[in-house]
Amino acid sequence: MATSRFLGYLESRKNIAGSACGLAGLVLTFTGAAGPYWPVVVTGLYAAGALIAPPERPPLPDFPDPSAQLDELRADFGRLRDYLADVELPPAASGRLTELTDLLTALLDPGWVAEVLAQDPEGVHALSRAVRQDVPEAVDTFVRTRWWTRLTPGTDPPERHLERQLSVLQEEFTALAATLRDVEARRQESHTRYLEGRSG
């Protein structure tokens, strides 16, 4: 531990700056400018260099980049689809869920769409929340509430809430897709202006 700390100091900015100033003190000694006090001059210059050197900057945490986050999200989405395949839903809710999962599949497919999505951290977060929380919770809550509804007929049908929840999610990700489309449209327009400006 002490050895690694010592080796770390040898490579530090403080030691490098101090050594450079100490070498300047040795130059002064050899030219006779330091006189008999040369050890004090060399030591003082080393200490001054070590003090004025910028502090060491700790390395940034190694967080996964957005592409890696999307890879993990795709794996979770695959598990979600396996779960949904085992759930029996009413036709209307099943149709809405299919539309939603088709949209999520298109957004998560590897390729240029995912590259654009990776530049939108809020979009990645929204997709992550939908895959890992919103959709499974909506479906699971429906399944549990439907069981209780059989014991207490005449209450508000749980499929109505499920359909509304899926509709809200569908609207959210339709808007996200439109936002990503607008990003590409602006990029295309910028390239057009660049080419027109270049040609004079």
Rank of each mutant, 00 (worst) to 15 (best):
Gly123Met: 01
Asp82Lys: 11
Gln119Met: 06
Thr3Arg: 15
Asp102Ser: 06
Glu72Ile: 03
Leu7Thr: 06
Ala68Trp: 11
Leu151Tyr: 15
Thr29Cys: 02
Ala50Val: 03
His191Asn: 11
Val124Trp: 04
Gln69Pro: 12
Tyr9Arg: 14
Asp102Leu: 08
Leu195Ala: 00
Val113Met: 12
Asp156Cys: 14
Trp112Glu: 15
Ser67His: 15
Glu122His: 04
Arg13Gly: 02
Thr98Asp: 12
Thr155Glu: 13
Asp182Thr: 09
Asp76Trp: 04
Asp82Leu: 11
Pro55His: 08
Trp147Glu: 13
Gly35Pro: 15
Arg181Pro: 10
Arg187Trp: 00
Leu23Lys: 03
Pro158Gly: 06
Ala34Asp: 14
Pro36Thr: 09
Ala85His: 09
Asp62Arg: 07
Gly25Ile: 02
Leu151Ala: 15
Glu122Ser: 07
Arg160Lys: 06
Met1Gln: 09
Leu26Gln: 06
Leu117Glu: 01
Ala175Thr: 11
Pro153Tyr: 02
Thr149Ser: 08
Asp62Met: 03
Asp120Val: 00
Ala185Arg: 13
Glu159Met: 09
Ser190Ile: 03
Ile16Cys: 01
Pro136Cys: 04
Thr192Val: 01
Arg193Trp: 14
Glu72Arg: 14
Thr192His: 10
Ala68Thr: 12
Arg146Ala: 05
Val113Gly: 08
Val40Ile: 12
Leu104Pro: 01
Thr29Arg: 09
Ala92Val: 07
Val183Asp: 08
Asp71His: 02
Tyr37Asp: 10
Ala17Tyr: 04
Ala93Leu: 02
Pro54Asn: 05
Gly78Phe: 12
Thr29Tyr: 05
Leu60Met: 12
Val124Asp: 08
Leu84Arg: 00
Ala106Val: 11
Gly154Asp: 11
Thr3Trp: 15
Pro36Ala: 12
Arg129Met: 06
Pro121Thr: 06
Asp156Thr: 15
Asp156Pro: 13
Gln119Thr: 03
Asp62Val: 00
Val183Leu: 08
Trp112Phe: 14
Arg13Thr: 02
Leu195Gln: 00
Gly35Asp: 15
Thr105Trp: 14
Leu26Ser: 05
Ser67Glu: 15
Pro36Cys: 09
Ser128Lys: 09
Trp148Ile: 06
Asp156Glu: 14
Ala47Gly: 09
Phe6Glu: 10
Ala17Phe: 04
Glu172Arg: 07
Thr155Ser: 14
Leu45Cys: 02
Pro136Thr: 03
Ser67Asp: 15
Pro54Arg: 04
Ala175Lys: 12
Glu171Met: 13
Arg198Asp: 03
Ala24Phe: 04
Arg129Glu: 12
Tyr37Asn: 10
Asp182Gly: 09
